[in-house]
Design a protein around this nucleic acid. Structure first.
Length: 176
DNA sequence: CCTAATCTGATCATAACCATTATGATCAGCTCATTAGG
């Protein structure tokens, strides 16, 4: 496997995951799949990960970035598919492939996640991976869990009874 | 219903190059993004 994990690097404790460098061969595979379907399901992404010898989570990120940047580049003229277009207003085709099956966390795992979250809602890659190893789930699931948790946590902010004199501003003291 | 999975869009950050660009990684989502599985 081409997993290089240089541990001797001044210990970048809480950093993001190192950049993945795709080869031309890998990009060829990904681009071809993207042209075929920009919204691959989990099975397709896993197949691509195997074929390109990378991780499924990297495939996911790559497709997200690709959609955001290479979305509608051409003009929408030759986009129409002639036949097969009888009625598309009520019965929408769920073209989406199957997504990854839901992860079921045990109370023990949840406990560890919640505790880690209270310590640091923004764990870096190393922290995420360590935690993932401890509770026995993939790091990508840990990352998703933190994203969802933060989203819900931030939402609580709205039902705060302010005392009128509390003028709030966006204080993003994001220490790093 | 709850919440994991997924999505868009913006932004940060890094590997190429030598100030700029391309692109991978991460973030929020607002009176809480949307979709969907158990």
């Amino acid at each position: 496997m081409a997993q290089d994990n240089s541990p001797n690097k001044t210990t970048p404790v809480n950093h993001r995951r190192s950049r993945t460098k795709f080869t031309q061969d890998q990009l060829k595979i990904l681009i071809k799949a993207f042209d075929k379907n920009p919204y691959p399901g989990y099975a397709t992404k896993q197949k691509l990960a195997l074929e390109a010898n990378t991780e499924e989570s990297r495939i996911q990120i790559w497709f997200q970035n690709r959609r955001a940047r290479h979305q509608k580049k051409s003009e929408p003229d030759e986009d129409l598919e002639s036949s097969q277009d009888q009625d598309h207003l009520e019965e929408e085709i769920q073209s989406r492939e199957d997504r990854r099956s839901r992860t079921n966390y045990t109370s023990l795992q949840l406990h560890a996640l919640i505790e880690a979250f209270s310590n640091n809602p923004y764990p870096g890659f190393d922290s995420r991976e360590q935690l993932a190893k401890e509770i026995g789930v993939p790091e990508s699931r840990v990352q998703i869990w933190f994203q969802n948790r933060r989203s819900r946590f931030h939402a609580q902010r709205k039902s705060e009874p302010d005392d009128g004199d509390l003028e709030q501003r966006q204080d993003q003291e994001q220490d790093l």
